[in-house]
Amino acid sequence: MSFDSVDFSWAAAGILLAVAVGVVVVTFAVTLVIARVVGKHSIVDVTWGLGFVLVAVAVYVASGVLGTGNPTVRLVALALPVVWGLRLAIYIGWRNHGKGEDPRYAAMLGDGHAPGAITGTVLRKVYLPQAGVMIVVVLPVIAAMVRASVVLPVLVLGAAVWLVGFVFESVGDAQLARFKANPATKGTVLDSGLWRYTRHPNYFGDFCVWWGIFLVAVGHPAGLITVVGPALMSYLLIGVTGKELTEKSMSNRPGYAEYVERTSGFLPLPPGSAPARAT
C-alpha cells in the first residue's frame, strides 16, 4: 500500500471533511434552538450520539456520490458509528426525560444563567467544544470512506474491538440504570456486574468503540493520521469529562473510597488484584 490517489483519495477526503463540518455546525445550531425552547442545555447530550449518526450517514452518501472508497469498508464505517450513536442517543434521551438541567451544566454555567439562555458562555463552554471534538473524533470514519483497498484482518479486528466496546458500554449503562432504579441501593456504590472489574465500564466501552473504528480506517497508511480522533476521545474519557469528573462527584459517597481501592480505574481487571489497586 502507498499514499497514492488510487488507494486513498485525498481530494475526496477533503470534500467529506467539509460535509462533516457542515453537518456538525447545523446539528449543533438546531440543538441550540431546541435547548432554548425546552429550557435546558443538557439536551446536547442526546446530540452527542445523534451527531455522529448524522455525520456518518452524510459522508457515506457523499462518498457514494463521489464514487470513492471500497463498498465493504464504507458500509462497516457507516454501521459502527450509527449503531453506537443511536443507542447512546436513545439511552440518554430516556434517562433524561422529564428532568431539569443536568447538574454538570448548571454548575458550569453558574447560578445566574437563565434556563436555556443562549449566551457567549454557553457557546464557549458547551457547544463549540463539543462540536470541535466531534469533527476531530469522526476523522477515522472519513478516512475509511475514501479507502479503496481492503485489509480484511484489520477490518475484522477493528469491528471486534468495536463490539467489545459496544457491549461494555451498553451493558454497563443497563446495569447502572437498574441500580439507580432500585430504592434499596440509593446512596450506595455499584460494585457488581461489569462494575466489579472497572469503575467505568461505559467509558472503557466508549474508548474501545472509537479505537475499533480507527482500526477500520488504518487499512491504508494514510488512515494513521486520524489517530488524533481516538486519542482525543481517550484523553477526554480518562482525564477530563469522563472518569475524572465522575470520580470527583462520587468521592464523598459512603463506600466509594473502598471501592476505588479494590477496583481498576479504567481497564477491566480482577477486583482486588495488584494491578487493579495500582490504578
Rank of each mutant, 00 (worst) to 15 (best):
F8D: 04
S149Q: 12
T68Y: 06
G193T: 04
P71M: 06
S63L: 02
D7Q: 10
A79E: 01
P270K: 01
T119I: 04
Q130Y: 05
V23G: 08
S192M: 01
V55C: 03
A276H: 10
M250C: 05
V167T: 07
T279F: 03
G265A: 07
T47H: 02
T121P: 00
L267N: 03
A12M: 08
P221H: 13
V227Y: 00
N202Q: 09
V24Q: 11
T121D: 09
V53E: 10
L232C: 08
V38I: 15
V126Y: 03
V37D: 02
L232N: 09
V141E: 03
W84P: 06
A107F: 03
I92S: 02
V30M: 11
F3V: 13
V82S: 11
A89F: 00
G205S: 11
V21W: 05
V6N: 13
V216Y: 05
V24P: 01
M1W: 05
G265D: 14
C208A: 15
T241Y: 04
L78Q: 13
A231D: 01
D4P: 07
P153K: 00
R178V: 05
T31E: 09
A62H: 05
I43T: 12
E101W: 09
R277Y: 02
V33F: 15
L80V: 13
C208F: 14
I34N: 01
P201R: 00
K40V: 04
H97I: 01
V260Y: 00
G265P: 08
I135K: 00
P221E: 09
V55N: 02
M233R: 04
F168P: 04
V33L: 15
V59C: 05
T198S: 14
P140T: 07
K125E: 03
T68V: 15
L163C: 13
G242P: 05
T188F: 15
I90L: 15
V61T: 04
A257E: 14
P115L: 01
A222E: 10
R124A: 15
L66M: 11
F207Y: 11
V154Q: 12
F166K: 00
L194T: 04
L194V: 09
G229Y: 03
V30W: 07
G39E: 02
R36H: 13
R74M: 14
S249T: 08
G132D: 07
P221W: 15
V228L: 13
T31Q: 08
L80M: 10
A231Y: 03
